[in-house]
Simulated scan of single mutants.
Amino acid sequence: MNAQVEENVFKRVLWLYGLYSLLNLFSFLLGYHFLPEGFMRGSPYSAIGSFVASASSFWSEFSLTLLFNLSVVIVVCILTNLQQFRHVPIGYIVPVVLGIVSGLVSGTNSFAASDLKQFNALDGMALGMGIGGIEMLAYVLVISATANIGLYNYESLKQWQGKRLKNIRQIKLSVSEMFCLGLGILMIIFAAYRETVMAFAQ
């Protein structure tokens, strides 16, 4: 299992984004065909969108969106990778969860700030790929870049304390990992700007 972590960072990106895409497609179709419209509207995922959309100006909404997205990167994507379960980074769970949840939200038209029915198929796909697609790829880049920073490994869910793998000073990123990390952060900033532009264009 440790071989997964030691693979080339670009292989990790392709593997994780492929897994996310597969789960996203499956949950989108599940939501569209079997769940009522607006099914996910009361979820925390949608509630965050409502809070951000309540901002009064372009720059305040952009700041809130960026703050939330960067917080997800730092707290969820990077800090979870400090822990491993059987030598697999815990951060790998993030694309799995986001793939399922985002697919259900879009499949049931549960976005708090917009109604997908106002867009035709072509515009809707371009909008989704230009904001959510970029954002998710950015998360995958960050998770893949920091997959090797694990400090503790747990062999069982019953363990209270994992086996120490290294200390903080031993954490080092390769040049390719630094590139992916920097690119991911830039893409998050770009996606937040695009999302704010879309919100104020409606």
Score class of each variant (00 low, 15 high):
Y20G: 05
Y20N: 03
Y20R: 03
S21L: 02
S21F: 01
S21C: 02
S21W: 07
L22S: 00
L22A: 02
L22G: 01
L22N: 00
L23Y: 03
N24K: 02
N24T: 03
L25Q: 06
L25Y: 07
L25D: 09
F26Y: 13
F26H: 06
F26T: 09
F26I: 12
F26M: 10
F26Q: 05
F26L: 09
F26R: 06
S27D: 01
S27H: 01
S27Q: 01
F28P: 04
F28H: 07
F28V: 05
L29G: 05
L29A: 11
L30V: 10
L30D: 06
L30W: 06
G31Q: 06
G31P: 03
Y32Q: 09
Y32S: 04
Y32I: 05
Y32C: 04
H33A: 08
H33V: 12
H33Y: 07
H33Q: 05
F34D: 15
F34V: 15
P36T: 01
E37A: 10
E37C: 10
E37G: 04
E37Q: 02
G38Y: 15
G38R: 15
F39M: 13
M40P: 10
R41S: 14
R41T: 14
R41Q: 14
R41L: 14
G42K: 05
G42V: 14
G42D: 05
G42S: 13
G42R: 08
S43N: 02
S43R: 01
S43H: 11
P44S: 04
P44K: 04
P44N: 02
P44I: 04
P44M: 04
Y45P: 06
Y45K: 03
Y45E: 08
Y45M: 08
S46K: 04
S46P: 10
S46R: 10
A47P: 00
A47I: 13
A47Y: 00
A47R: 05
I48F: 03
I48E: 12
I48S: 08
I48T: 14
G49N: 05
G49T: 09
G49S: 11
G49V: 10
G49K: 09
G49C: 10
S50T: 04
S50E: 10
S50A: 11
S50Y: 02
F51E: 15
F51K: 05
F51G: 02
F51Y: 11
V52D: 07
V52W: 04
V52A: 11
A53N: 07
A53I: 06
A53T: 03
A53Y: 04
S54M: 02
S54Q: 01
S54N: 01
A55V: 00
A55M: 11
A55E: 02
A55R: 00
A55W: 00
S56G: 13
S56F: 02
S57G: 14
S57K: 06
S57F: 11
S57A: 12
F58N: 01
F58G: 08
F58K: 12
F58A: 08
W59E: 11
W59G: 10
W59H: 02
W59A: 09
W59F: 11
W59Y: 09
S60H: 13
S60V: 15
E61W: 01
E61V: 06
F62A: 06
F62R: 13
F62W: 03
F62H: 12
F62P: 03
F62T: 05
S63I: 13
S63A: 04
S63W: 13
S63K: 12
S63L: 13
S63N: 11
S63Y: 12
L64W: 15
L64M: 10
